[in-house]
Design a protein around this nucleic acid. Sequence first.
DNA 1: ACAAAAGTGTTTTTAATACACCCATGA
DNA 2: TCATGGGTGTATTAAAAACACTTTTGT
Lengths: 247, 247
Amino acid sequence: MSIPGRNINPTISVDCVIFGFSTNQLKVLLIERSFTDRSGIESKDYKLPGDFISINEDLDLAASRTLEEMTGLRDIFLCQFAVFGKPDRISNPVDMEWLLETTGLEIQRVVTAAYYSLINIGETNTDFAIKNSASWIDVKQIPKLAFDHADIIEQGLIRLQLSLRSEPIGFEMLPEKFTIRDLQILYEAILDCTLDNRNFRKKILKSSYLVQLDEKQTGVAHKPAHYYRFDRYIYEKHKKESLGFNF
Amino acid sequence: MSIPGRNINPTISVDCVIFGFSTNQLKVLLIERSFTDRSGIESKDYKLPGDFISINEDLDLAASRTLEEMTGLRDIFLCQFAVFGKPDRISNPVDMEWLLETTGLEIQRVVTAAYYSLINIGETNTDFAIKNSASWIDVKQIPKLAFDHADIIEQGLIRLQLSLRSEPIGFEMLPEKFTIRDLQILYEAILDCTLDNRNFRKKILKSSYLVQLDEKQTGVAHKPAHYYRFDRYIYEKHKKESLGFNF
DNA sequence: ACAAAAGTGTTTTTAATACACCCATGA
DNA sequence: TCATGGGTGTATTAAAAACACTTTTGT
């Protein structure tokens, strides 16, 4: 959130849809927000991690700053996918009150640049999450959200699904080493479908950038799977150009 | 440009990359901008059609307003594709001076929502273009541009190419009735490639939403081509879902 | 020996590509 | 009759999809 005293530009913000993957589910990092409604009843809901930009702060940098404040992570996959600027996106009295409380300013109109980000939950710093009352919520169980944040998540997910089909970005959410099954479950969670395991392997293992490690799983009550890792260097070298008409 | 007296939000603007197609070339609508540089020499360059948003104006509406002011057209294909918000995107003294002249305000920082739009040049109202000193410039011959508008066009074109591969949007730039050849040349111009005419026809004619008219070309010194039209209704009904992995 | 996931091949279907000639018209 | 672009078909190759069983481990 806003650091008191810093010079903010109260007309422009960034919001981050931070995706992560755990217990076979695609999750989003949400911040708990407490507020008192008009009848004085203390209540709470959730919002996306986001912030006003500082005067002279680059949008991308504001997004990575937000990301770091929430997770402790730097140099993270981050992609700007849309701007949300409906004049009435701040119209719920609860939201207006909350803005007043947290910024001390009367704010009627904010245009927000939306980013999505892919995180390996295992590498995130839990202290940061606790400090921000942040938690990882299953994308299929999104609670009531502040502002137009539900729309933002929806659009972000659509965009993530689209990108996943044309670029190998799933790895960003997995640990350094993972099994092909891990990867398949991740794809299924993101695309919300089931995939044939033989065809998935065939397709994914054709990629030169997936390299098999000598290491195998241990302590599992079934045939242990090989670990693989994603080789960014190889990927960058082999990036394909394709016309790929699809209509 | 800004209507004097209207209440603008001088921190947020929209810029439109308006694509059109004529004489077998993909074109962009650019506005001529005259300015006097520091040594007092009168000079000119080009900029994208764009404007600050009004207080309480929706971004999409600001973009369609701009579009209508430039071309006289309403209800036009329009797609927001990125936000440009580098703090130094307004740093050239010429640009800063020009902003001061046209708005009367000292402006240091503007975040702009970029849209691209597809126009049938034949339907545009020339009076509007003349009034705005706008002209259609071949995308391969873009002159020096104001601000970061060259980047915006480049990103817009990349996005247009991407969309053209997955959605039938080329029709937006053609008249109501057109020949398959017209369409192929349009595709070649946008994608900057050549396409085999037999394969192109085979592929495109598979689409149920391309309907052949009884009418043929007349007065051409060769076998006259059939006219076709794009049926939006059929397209919407048959929209495909496809996983289409491509990595 | 059983449960659980790993790993593997072949066939069918579909889409993409490459390629060359005859047709209808106006000049 | 010639120049111009319109319009057509087939064979090859590549990718996607469908589908079932054996292997290895821990319990």
